[in-house]
Design a protein around this nucleic acid. Structure first.
Length: 826
RNA sequence: GCCGAAGUGGCGGAACGGUAGACGCGGCGGUCUCAAAAACCGUUGGGAGUUACAUCCCGUGCCGGUUCGAAUCCGGCCUUCGGCACCA
């Protein structure tokens, strides 16, 4: 190319992301290269990123989740897989309804426009999604299958209705699951949560507690497995009954759960949760006033307040006693707000000598402290604090003298023989409360009939549609409950007038099976086409934030297992591999609208381009550890994009006239092959930051080779081609543009990733590190083929080594092939 | 309090038990320019030392240990972040 030609085309030779990015996005859409076909003969690969809630604007946190996973999906495509990497929207939820109450826009309208905007932003990012598979969970075509699954669960006894205390958010006017309460505050609106009793629907997750503890079939971060294990909180113990028959009630015993049955002889009191149904019956008249005002005050507190460790533990005496059948002790029954009705039996046995909380409680209320497990060097005196470790049984009837570990088993045996209780397992995890007193969710397909009771809707009548003329008023009552047309219906069984259930489902129901829907998103004969699911599921690689470690991920696992047991699926786990990305923060603070440090991607895309933003997000640190957004860092990435553009648009024919240096050609070849290896291995493991660093090193080496004018045009063209192919998963637009400009055929994204030659990917000459007593003393350039003997000789003949071994005796030498010689001298 | 993760230059971060600081940002110096920006080139952990080379010492939160050799492994602390919490 002549100087004139180059001058004339200068505008074309400038990297202009604003021009090329929309161009290629359009071309990709028109050509359908990202359409995913079930019948494609290539091996299948399903990579899924947690779908977003359509809040309206994709912020940089979304990009941080989407861009690297998109790059990984593209990488797998170039490895020859038929990759399903779909996208959808978790479209139901509180914010849209709150917004409707606030400004009168119907949730469906707002959600629709939010989705439209976010879809636009996701396209702008240059993603590989097949939009023909998009899911919108608020569409009846989707949520009818929530209802269908609910009915299947109901038939199987996995869905049930119960009157239970629930968290109540006064601001959102809705019930929150315990899992959705953060620091005593509503997860979404941060209001303080209180409690209310409501009749609601639950899914029996605890049925699967033990199987959910088993992570052996999935390859997940250990951290997540541990969090789930702790969340499920399995503990083994004994349900032990205390005798209250002296009061002539229907119930003659109080059952408490304990993990420390070895301390049963040390029980000096029993505490009921304030809400416990027996509190009323067990309170004597002279204690009634005190107990009632205590219970009143406890009910006004939130669960979080009650469980606060800051607070002094309190309780009141009911006037009644329970008998410990093992030793006949008559111990007082108290009511204490630190006992929760939702865990165990809602009754706790108090063993002050061996539980620190009980110890403090007993000290405060002057209750006896009876040692039954003696510490090793116990003198028989009073304890200064609870002794919670193992010891020797004392004051324990026939069990005295046993080590407490053995006492535990023998006492449990004895109790079971006597019929006073039995071994039991308790879980910290509770059943999943799915009822929401809200409009913007999936209606629960149940009808209440005065004659027939609770009647499930017939399958054929699904979906139960959300009425689109609901009123959104700030009264807190569900719009569905006020909607006469929705509320009043006829009983599917007897035809008489009946009322619909007006609660809708938790949105975590939607996300518990959406990964199945993507396999056949338009299927209308069931939640999914089993053949398609067999083709794609389970998900090979799931990515998302660790904030979903316990709720979403546990519920999705529960759904999979429940559906398997209902004969719908033949696998056990929804997501085979999981990768958790970290959080991106701005200026060392978590991004939030209140801090005003939310980074919106649109403006960056319009200036430096989506490719630079994508790559910067991948470059700023290891993906699983999160990172810091910085504008100057982004500029650096943008500069590199420009350099790559410049390098790859150089006219390689110019090189032909230069003298070619065979050594330089070989060096460039080696650099390229090493880069292929590094990038491939790094992308495989989600190490995008080092993959990009390797590409930068490669481009730097290419720049130097060009300056030296020492390589052939063939070598140069080969380097450009490989550089572009390796860059393509991370920067799809610029690589496609340069692929075309260098005369190659559309599309780079349909190419195979280049392979590396193991021979070329290693150095010819290595730097042999020479240490004396482990300290670096010299570096020698030696051929890679050097033998151990030669390496030792080379090390010993080094002048710098001699300086440090002078006057010493060489005791031994350590040789690490291809790496180092360590001379040990004394 | 419990569980988990992490502490490396001015900053983000590299580093199969084997060259600490790759790559990038920022800084400094230079080229270009009337000047500036942009771009490009060089340089950049701290200290001692030399005219200049050379060379040496110190350095991965702290204290120990294992090892020929430790950012990496082990023990004990400290700090930060995330999650959970009267769980009986």
């Amino acid at each position: 190319m002549t100087t004139t030609a180059r001058t004339m085309n200068r505008a074309d030779l400038k990297y202009d992301p604003a021009e090329i990015e929309p161009k290629w996005q359009g071309r990709w859409a028109d050509s359908g290269i990202y359409r995913v076909d079930d019948d494609d003969p290539r091996p299948k690969r399903y990579e899924l990123t947690m779908y977003p809630y359509p809040s309206g604007d994709l912020h940089i946190g979304h990009w941080y989740a989407m861009a690297p996973s998109d790059a990984h999906a593209r990488y797998m495509r170039m490895r020859g897989y038929n990759v399903l990497h779909p996208m959808g929207f978790d479209a139901f939820g509180l914010p849209a309804e709150n917004a409707a109450i606030r400004d009168g826009v119907h949730p469906a309208i707002r959600t629709g426009s939010n989705i439209e905007n976010m879809r636009r932003q996701l396209r702008m990012l240059g993603t590989v999604y097949d939009w023909e598979r998009e899911i919108d969970t608020s569409a009846p075509e989707y949520y009818r299958w929530n209802q269908w699954l609910f009915l299947k669960f109901y038939e199987a006894g996995l869905a049930y209705r119960d009157h239970a205390p629930a968290n109540w958010c006064p601001s959102c006017n809705t019930v929150l699951a315990n899992e959705q309460v953060v620091d005593g505050r509503c997860e979404r609106c941060s209001s303080e949560v209180s409690r209310r009793d409501l009749n609601q629907w639950l899914f029996r997750v605890t049925e699967y507690a033990d199987e959910l503890l088993d992570h052996s079939k999935i390859d997940w971060p250990e951290k997540i497995n541990i969090m789930q294990t702790n969340w499920i909180g399995r503990s083994e113990g004994v349900d032990i009954e205390f005798d209250i028959s002296e009061y002539g009630l229907d119930q003659t015993t109080l059952t408490t759960f304990t993990t420390r049955i070895d301390t049963i002889f040390g029980v000096t009191f029993v505490v009921l949760a304030p809400e416990h149904p027996l509190v009323d019956e067990l309170t004597l008249p002279e204690h009634r006033d005190e107990v009632e005002s205590y219970v009143d005050q406890a009910r006004r507190q939130t669960e979080i307040e009650r469980m606060s460790t800051e607070k002094v533990k309190t309780g009141v005496f009911t006037g009644t006693h329970a008998v410990n059948r093992l030793n006949g002790d008559r111990v007082p029954i108290l009511v204490g707000d630190y006992v929760l009705l939702t865990y165990g039996t809602g009754i706790v046995m108090g063993v002050p000598a061996h539980d620190q909380r009980d110890f403090e409680f007993a000290t405060k209320y002057d209750l006896p402290i009876k040692v039954v497990v003696a510490p090793p060097d116990w003198d028989g005196g009073k304890l200064a604090e609870a002794y919670v470790d193992e010891g020797t049984q004392v004051n324990s009837g026939g069990f005295d003298g046993l080590p407490s570990a053995e006492g535990k088993e023998r006492i449990a045996d004895h109790i079971e023989e006597q019929g006073w209780g039995k071994r039991a397992v308790q879980y910290r995890m509770r059943d999943w409360l799915i009822s929401r007193q809200r409009y913007w969710g999936t209606p629960i397909p149940i009808v209440y009939c005065d004659e027939c009771g609770t009647v499930p809707m017939p399958e054929d009548d699904l979906p139960v549609l959300l009425p689109d003329d609901a009123e959104f008023l700030p009264t807190g009552e569900s719009p569905l409950r006020r909607h006469e047309g929705f509320l009043n219906t006829s009983c599917p069984e007897c035809g008489r007038s009946a009322r619909r259930e007006t609660d809708t489902m938790d949105t975590f129901v939607d996300s518990s099976w959406y990964q199945l829907r993507f396999a056949s998103p338009r299927y209308d004969k069931g939640p999914f086409d089993l053949d398609a699911v067999k083709t794609w599921n389970p998900v090979d690689q799931y990515t998302g934030g660790a904030e979903h470690a316990v709720m979403h991920l546990l519920y999705a696992r529960f759904f999979t297992k429940a559906m398997r047991d209902l004969g719908m699926l033949d696998f056990d786990e929804p997501f085979t591999r999981l990768f958790n990305q970290g959080h991106i923060i701005a200026e060392h603070q978590k991004m939030s609208k209140s801090r005003g440090n939310v980074v919106s991607p649109d403006e960056y895309v319009s200036t430096v381009g989506a490719d630079a933003v994508r790559c910067y997000l991948m470059f700023l640190g290891p993906w699983d550890q999160g990172g810091n957004w910085s504008d100057t860092g982004l500029n650096g990435m943008s500069r590199w994009m420009n350099r790559v553009f410049d390098l790859c648009t150089r006219e390689s024919a110019e090189l032909d006239s230069s003298p070619v240096d065979e050594g330089a050609v070989r060096d460039l070849d080696r650099t390229v092959h090493k880069t292929i290896r590094r990038v491939t291995e790094d992308l495989e493991r989600f190490k995008f930051n080092t993959a990009l660093a390797a590409l930068m090193e490669c481009s730097n080496a290419m720049g130097r080779a060009w300056e030296a004018g020492s390589v052939s045009s063939d070598a140069w063209d080969g380097a450009v081609e490989r550089l572009l192919l390796l860059l393509a998963p991370m920067a799809p637009h610029i690589s496609e543009e340069l692929w075309e400009r260098t005369g190659r055929e559309f599309s780079i994204h349909s190419q195979a990733l280049p392979a590396w030659d193991p021979e070329l990917a290693t150095d010819e000459v290595i730097t042999l590190v020479v240490q004396v007593n482990g300290r670096l003393r010299d570096r020698l350039e030696v051929p890679v083929s050097i033998t151990e003997e030669e390496a030792r000789e080379a090390a010993l003949s080094s002048r710098r080594v001699a300086v440090h071994t002078e006057g010493k005796r060489v005791v031994r030498m350590i040789y690490v092939p291809g790496k180092l010689v360590n001379v040990v001298a004394r």
